[in-house]
């Protein structure tokens, strides 16, 4: 059966994921070593140890994401995070930075290393380099590959692959996107925050709801309509009229929708994917429980050759709409 890797932003969400049928849970420390460094989220060292004990007692593995890029001069913060995750009994650490990977491989030879999606390793040559040089055991593939490209990659690599199947959709070369930095000075790569909440403002203006990021208007929706979280890559923008055409308003890169690749699970299995990842460490334990339960049923169905359940989770998605993202390359 394919492994289901589930998110936990809090100890309560970790327990919810374990109880709902996760095979593995990923989480991170409450600091900038973690690409989901949001207010009120994440784990202290004692909370991580307790979470690992809870999961281990039920046969579930815990992976610790230390997937931001260390600041020059402050690498010790990231080194300490790897050491503490190892000491707490993490099954693996999920890393992105080349220097941190080299440090972990050298200082913690017994620790299993996974390559984060933030490393944006999107071809066999890059993945094989990480495997041969540092002993990376699994790569989380960027959300820009088609199923055929994933199958082709798996034919040329020895390490396991993990792909996202549900949740927030990043359409950029992950680890290299600077949109959030441009608007706010903070980024997922260095600070662990894409569109940091400290720079987000919602307001009701003239019968509309407005969502701004760093003072920039990203969404305006009629009152009562869904209001997406203001991320620049999913923003709605107006291009002024030109001599060749009228003004146009629309989403520049991607609509504010979430990934739902449930229907593609059998194809991903056939493509040689080892693990399916659910995004959403910033979501509640209610979300985690519902999504994990639904995907556990889906991977069991795939294992039995049964049809995939569909449309169960639409209400939990951003914009309350879903896409199969790059896997089928139907978006612009």
């Amino acid at each position: 059966m394919m492994e289901l890797v589930c998110p936990a932003g809090t100890p309560a969400a970790l327990r919810a994921a374990v109880d709902a049928g996760a095979h593995a849970v990923y989480c991170g420390f409450a600091d900038e070593t973690n690409a989901r460094n949001f207010p009120g989220l994440n784990f202290s060292r004692p909370e991580l140890a307790e979470g690992i004990a809870y999961a281990a007692a039920r046969g579930v593995r815990v992976l610790v994401a230390i997937n931001t890029f260390p600041r020059a001069g402050d690498q010790a913060i990231w080194h300490r995070a790897v050491a503490d995750a190892h000491a707490a009994g993490a099954h693996a650490v999920i890393l992105a930075d080349l220097g941190l990977i080299a440090h972990a491989a050298e200082a913690h030879p017994g620790l299993r290393l996974h390559l984060s999606v933030q490393a944006a390793a999107a071809n066999p040559d890059a993945i094989n380099l990480y495997a041969e040089a540092f002993g990376i055991r699994r790569v989380v593939l960027p959300r820009v590959l088609t199923v055929d490209e994933i199958a082709a990659t798996n034919r040329e690599i020895e390490v396991e692959t993990e792909v996202f199947v549900f949740g927030g959709l990043c359409v950029m070369a992950e680890g290299r996107c600077s949109l959030s930095s441009w608007a706010t000075g903070l980024s997922p790569n260095m600070n662990g925050v894409c569109s940091p909440a400290s720079h987000v403002a919602y307001a009701e203006v003239g019968g509309h709801n407005e969502a701004r990021l760093g003072g920039l208007l990203i969404h305006r929706t009629p009152k009562g309509a869904p209001v997406p979280y203001p991320t620049l890559c999913k923003g709605c923008f107006t291009a002024p009229a030109t001599p060749s055409g009228p003004a146009q308003t629309g989403h520049l890169f991607e609509d504010p929708v979430s990934l739902d690749a449930t229907e593609l699970i059998p194809k991903l299995q056939k493509a040689g994917v080892t693990a399916l990842k659910i995004e959403g460490r910033q979501r509640s334990r209610a979300y985690v429980a519902q999504v994990v339960r639904a995907f556990r049923a889906a991977v069991e169905a795939a294992d039995a050759g049964a049809p995939m359940p569909a449309g169960l989770l639409a209400k939990l998605t951003e914009g309350q709409a879903a896409t199969t993202g790059a896997y089928a390359k139907t978006w612009r």
């Binding site: 709801n209 869904p226 979501r283 509640s284 334990r285 209610a286 519902q290 209400k315 939990l316």
Partner: peptide, 16 residues
């Protein structure tokens, strides 16, 4: 824990 806070927000049930 019956409903997800983000989902309530996305749907307009809660506003901040």
């Amino acid at each position: 824990g019956v409903e997800d806070g983000d989902a309530l927000f996305f749907s307009g049930e809660l506003e901040i």
